[in-house]
Amino acid sequence: MVVDDKRIRIITGYYGSGKTEFAVNYAYKMAREVKRPAIADLDIVNVYFRSREKTKEMEEAGIEVISSSVVEDNCDMPALSSRITVPFLDKSYDYIIDLGGSEVGAKVLGRFGDLIDKNEVDFFMVVNIFRPETGNEDEIIHQMRLLEQMSGFKITGLVNNSNLIHETRVEDILEGDAYLRKVSELTKIPIRYTTCMVDEVQQYSALIDKVGGEFFPMSYNMRTIWM
Protein backbone atom coordinates (compact mmCIF):
# COMPACT_ATOMS: atom_id res chain seq x y z
CA MET A 1 0.00 0.00 0.00
CA VAL A 2 1.18 3.48 -0.81
CA VAL A 3 0.71 4.46 2.82
CA ASP A 4 3.69 2.21 3.64
CA ASP A 5 6.04 4.33 1.53
CA LYS A 6 7.95 7.25 2.99
CA ARG A 7 6.23 10.61 3.31
CA ILE A 8 7.92 12.14 0.27
CA ARG A 9 7.80 9.98 -2.86
CA ILE A 10 9.87 11.20 -5.77
CA ILE A 11 9.23 9.56 -9.13
CA THR A 12 12.08 9.45 -11.62
CA GLY A 13 13.06 7.36 -14.63
CA TYR A 14 14.24 7.43 -18.19
CA TYR A 15 12.44 9.82 -20.51
CA GLY A 16 9.08 8.31 -21.48
CA SER A 17 9.18 5.47 -18.94
CA GLY A 18 5.65 6.30 -17.79
CA LYS A 19 6.49 8.35 -14.70
CA THR A 20 3.59 10.73 -15.06
CA GLU A 21 0.96 8.04 -15.58
CA PHE A 22 2.36 6.18 -12.56
CA ALA A 23 2.52 9.38 -10.45
CA VAL A 24 -1.08 10.33 -11.25
CA ASN A 25 -2.36 6.81 -10.51
CA TYR A 26 -0.30 6.86 -7.30
CA ALA A 27 -1.80 10.21 -6.31
CA TYR A 28 -5.35 8.81 -6.67
CA LYS A 29 -4.45 5.83 -4.48
CA MET A 30 -2.83 8.18 -1.98
CA ALA A 31 -6.02 10.24 -1.89
CA ARG A 32 -7.84 7.17 -0.54
CA GLU A 33 -5.20 6.23 2.04
CA VAL A 34 -3.76 9.45 3.50
CA LYS A 35 -5.13 12.63 5.04
CA ARG A 36 -3.39 15.36 3.10
CA PRO A 37 -2.13 14.26 -0.33
CA ALA A 38 -0.24 16.61 -2.63
CA ILE A 39 1.39 16.17 -6.02
CA ALA A 40 3.97 18.44 -7.61
CA ASP A 41 4.71 18.40 -11.30
CA LEU A 42 8.41 19.20 -11.70
CA ASP A 43 8.48 18.23 -15.35
CA ILE A 44 10.36 20.94 -17.18
CA VAL A 45 11.29 18.57 -20.01
CA ASN A 46 7.98 17.64 -21.63
CA VAL A 47 5.62 20.08 -23.25
CA TYR A 48 2.62 17.76 -23.58
CA PHE A 49 1.23 14.98 -21.33
CA ARG A 50 2.14 16.67 -18.05
CA SER A 51 0.40 15.79 -14.79
CA ARG A 52 -0.67 19.42 -14.32
CA GLU A 53 -3.09 18.87 -17.22
CA LYS A 54 -5.13 16.75 -14.80
CA THR A 55 -5.25 19.43 -12.08
CA LYS A 56 -9.05 19.77 -12.06
CA GLU A 57 -9.72 16.01 -11.81
CA MET A 58 -7.11 15.51 -9.10
CA GLU A 59 -8.32 18.46 -7.04
CA GLU A 60 -11.83 17.03 -7.16
CA ALA A 61 -10.37 13.83 -5.69
CA GLY A 62 -8.94 15.87 -2.80
CA ILE A 63 -5.35 16.06 -4.04
CA GLU A 64 -3.48 19.34 -3.80
CA VAL A 65 -1.80 19.95 -7.15
CA ILE A 66 1.30 22.10 -7.26
CA SER A 67 2.36 22.95 -10.78
CA SER A 68 5.92 23.76 -11.64
CA SER A 69 4.71 26.33 -14.11
CA VAL A 70 4.58 29.85 -12.75
CA VAL A 71 2.80 31.33 -15.73
CA GLU A 72 0.33 29.03 -17.45
CA ASP A 73 -0.10 25.45 -18.63
CA ASN A 74 1.02 26.00 -22.19
CA CYS A 75 4.27 27.67 -21.35
CA ASP A 76 7.49 25.71 -21.73
CA MET A 77 9.70 27.94 -19.62
CA PRO A 78 11.77 25.99 -17.09
CA ALA A 79 10.49 28.02 -14.13
CA LEU A 80 9.48 26.50 -10.81
CA SER A 81 6.92 27.69 -8.30
CA SER A 82 8.10 28.33 -4.73
CA ARG A 83 4.97 26.52 -3.49
CA ILE A 84 6.78 23.27 -4.27
CA THR A 85 8.81 23.61 -1.07
CA VAL A 86 5.82 23.79 1.32
CA PRO A 87 5.06 20.04 1.60
CA PHE A 88 8.78 19.28 2.00
CA LEU A 89 8.71 21.17 5.31
CA ASP A 90 5.10 20.71 6.44
CA LYS A 91 4.96 17.14 7.69
CA SER A 92 1.17 16.98 7.60
CA TYR A 93 1.46 16.37 3.84
CA ASP A 94 1.97 13.11 1.98
CA TYR A 95 3.80 14.25 -1.07
CA ILE A 96 4.47 12.84 -4.54
CA ILE A 97 6.84 14.55 -6.94
CA ASP A 98 6.63 13.88 -10.68
CA LEU A 99 10.08 14.67 -12.05
CA GLY A 100 10.90 15.28 -15.71
CA GLY A 101 12.53 12.53 -17.73
CA SER A 102 16.10 11.28 -17.56
CA GLU A 103 19.02 12.96 -15.84
CA VAL A 104 18.01 16.33 -17.30
CA GLY A 105 14.69 16.16 -15.47
CA ALA A 106 16.27 14.79 -12.29
CA LYS A 107 18.69 17.71 -12.11
CA VAL A 108 15.83 19.95 -10.92
CA LEU A 109 15.81 18.10 -7.62
CA GLY A 110 19.31 19.25 -6.78
CA ARG A 111 17.94 22.70 -6.08
CA PHE A 112 15.75 21.35 -3.25
CA GLY A 113 18.33 18.98 -1.75
CA ASP A 114 19.02 21.11 1.33
CA LEU A 115 15.31 21.44 2.16
CA ILE A 116 14.54 17.74 2.09
CA ASP A 117 15.22 15.31 4.93
CA LYS A 118 16.53 12.29 3.01
CA ASN A 119 15.23 9.91 5.68
CA GLU A 120 11.73 10.97 4.64
CA VAL A 121 12.23 10.18 0.96
CA ASP A 122 11.45 7.25 -1.28
CA PHE A 123 13.09 7.81 -4.66
CA PHE A 124 11.37 5.46 -7.11
CA MET A 125 12.78 4.70 -10.55
CA VAL A 126 10.12 3.80 -13.12
CA VAL A 127 11.36 1.40 -15.82
CA ASN A 128 9.78 0.33 -19.08
CA ILE A 129 12.13 -2.15 -20.77
CA PHE A 130 10.48 -1.45 -24.13
CA ARG A 131 11.83 2.11 -24.12
CA PRO A 132 15.28 2.90 -25.53
CA GLU A 133 18.29 3.01 -23.15
CA THR A 134 16.62 0.78 -20.53
CA GLY A 135 16.29 -2.50 -22.45
CA ASN A 136 18.49 -4.67 -20.21
CA GLU A 137 20.03 -4.72 -16.72
CA ASP A 138 23.25 -2.93 -17.75
CA GLU A 139 21.38 -0.07 -19.40
CA ILE A 140 18.96 0.24 -16.49
CA ILE A 141 21.80 0.42 -13.97
CA HIS A 142 23.61 2.98 -16.12
CA GLN A 143 20.48 5.16 -16.20
CA MET A 144 20.04 4.67 -12.47
CA ARG A 145 23.54 6.00 -11.77
CA LEU A 146 22.94 9.01 -14.01
CA LEU A 147 19.70 9.82 -12.20
CA GLU A 148 21.41 9.48 -8.81
CA GLN A 149 24.37 11.63 -9.81
CA MET A 150 22.22 14.41 -11.19
CA SER A 151 19.63 14.50 -8.41
CA GLY A 152 21.88 13.85 -5.41
CA PHE A 153 19.42 11.19 -4.17
CA LYS A 154 19.78 7.39 -4.02
CA ILE A 155 17.14 5.23 -5.69
CA THR A 156 15.20 3.34 -2.98
CA GLY A 157 12.82 1.29 -5.11
CA LEU A 158 12.19 0.10 -8.67
CA VAL A 159 8.85 0.28 -10.45
CA ASN A 160 8.35 -2.20 -13.29
CA ASN A 161 6.19 -0.29 -15.77
CA SER A 162 7.11 -2.42 -18.80
CA ASN A 163 4.38 -2.04 -21.41
CA LEU A 164 3.56 -1.58 -25.08
CA ILE A 165 0.45 0.54 -24.41
CA HIS A 166 -2.59 -1.23 -25.92
CA GLU A 167 -0.48 -4.16 -27.16
CA THR A 168 0.83 -5.16 -23.71
CA ARG A 169 0.67 -8.86 -22.84
CA VAL A 170 1.27 -10.66 -19.55
CA GLU A 171 4.57 -11.98 -21.00
CA ASP A 172 5.81 -8.42 -21.61
CA ILE A 173 5.33 -7.50 -17.97
CA LEU A 174 7.06 -10.72 -16.91
CA GLU A 175 9.97 -9.95 -19.24
CA GLY A 176 10.35 -6.59 -17.49
CA ASP A 177 10.13 -8.36 -14.16
CA ALA A 178 13.00 -10.70 -15.09
CA TYR A 179 15.30 -7.78 -15.96
CA LEU A 180 14.36 -5.83 -12.84
CA ARG A 181 15.04 -8.87 -10.65
CA LYS A 182 18.57 -8.95 -12.09
CA VAL A 183 18.95 -5.22 -11.43
CA SER A 184 17.67 -5.71 -7.91
CA GLU A 185 20.13 -8.54 -7.31
CA LEU A 186 23.07 -6.47 -8.55
CA THR A 187 22.16 -3.22 -6.81
CA LYS A 188 20.31 -4.52 -3.72
CA ILE A 189 17.51 -2.07 -4.53
CA PRO A 190 14.11 -3.75 -4.18
CA ILE A 191 11.32 -3.85 -6.78
CA ARG A 192 8.63 -1.81 -5.02
CA TYR A 193 5.76 -2.03 -7.53
CA THR A 194 4.79 -3.77 -10.76
CA THR A 195 2.19 -1.82 -12.72
CA CYS A 196 -0.49 -3.13 -15.03
CA MET A 197 -3.31 -1.46 -16.96
CA VAL A 198 -5.95 -3.86 -15.71
CA ASP A 199 -8.56 -2.88 -18.28
CA GLU A 200 -6.14 -3.67 -21.10
CA VAL A 201 -4.06 -6.71 -20.22
CA GLN A 202 -5.89 -9.98 -20.61
CA GLN A 203 -5.45 -12.52 -17.81
CA TYR A 204 -3.55 -10.01 -15.73
CA SER A 205 -4.54 -11.85 -12.56
CA ALA A 206 -1.87 -14.43 -13.46
CA LEU A 207 0.69 -11.75 -12.62
CA ILE A 208 -0.34 -10.88 -9.10
CA ASP A 209 1.72 -13.50 -7.25
CA LYS A 210 4.46 -13.85 -9.83
CA VAL A 211 5.88 -10.36 -10.12
CA GLY A 212 8.33 -8.57 -7.86
CA GLY A 213 7.09 -5.97 -5.38
CA GLU A 214 3.47 -5.05 -4.90
CA PHE A 215 1.03 -5.43 -7.80
CA PHE A 216 -0.06 -1.92 -8.81
CA PRO A 217 -3.21 -1.84 -10.97
CA MET A 218 -3.54 1.32 -13.05
CA SER A 219 -5.89 3.02 -15.49
CA TYR A 220 -5.14 5.63 -18.16
CA ASN A 221 -5.34 9.24 -17.09
CA MET A 222 -3.01 10.86 -19.58
CA ARG A 223 -4.24 9.21 -22.83
CA THR A 224 -7.68 10.06 -24.21
CA ILE A 225 -9.94 7.39 -25.70
CA TRP A 226 -8.85 7.85 -29.30
CA MET A 227 -5.13 7.44 -28.58
Partner: peptide, 10 residues
Protein backbone atom coordinates in the same frame (compact mmCIF):
# COMPACT_ATOMS: atom_id res chain seq x y z
CA UNK B 1 10.80 -6.55 -31.94
CA UNK B 2 8.45 -3.71 -31.15
CA UNK B 3 9.70 -0.83 -29.05
CA UNK B 4 7.83 2.00 -27.44
CA UNK B 5 8.84 5.26 -29.08
CA UNK B 6 7.78 8.87 -29.05
CA UNK B 7 7.01 10.15 -32.52
CA UNK B 8 10.00 12.46 -32.47
CA UNK B 9 12.36 9.66 -31.43
CA UNK B 10 10.83 7.40 -34.05
Amino acid sequence: AKVLLKGNEA
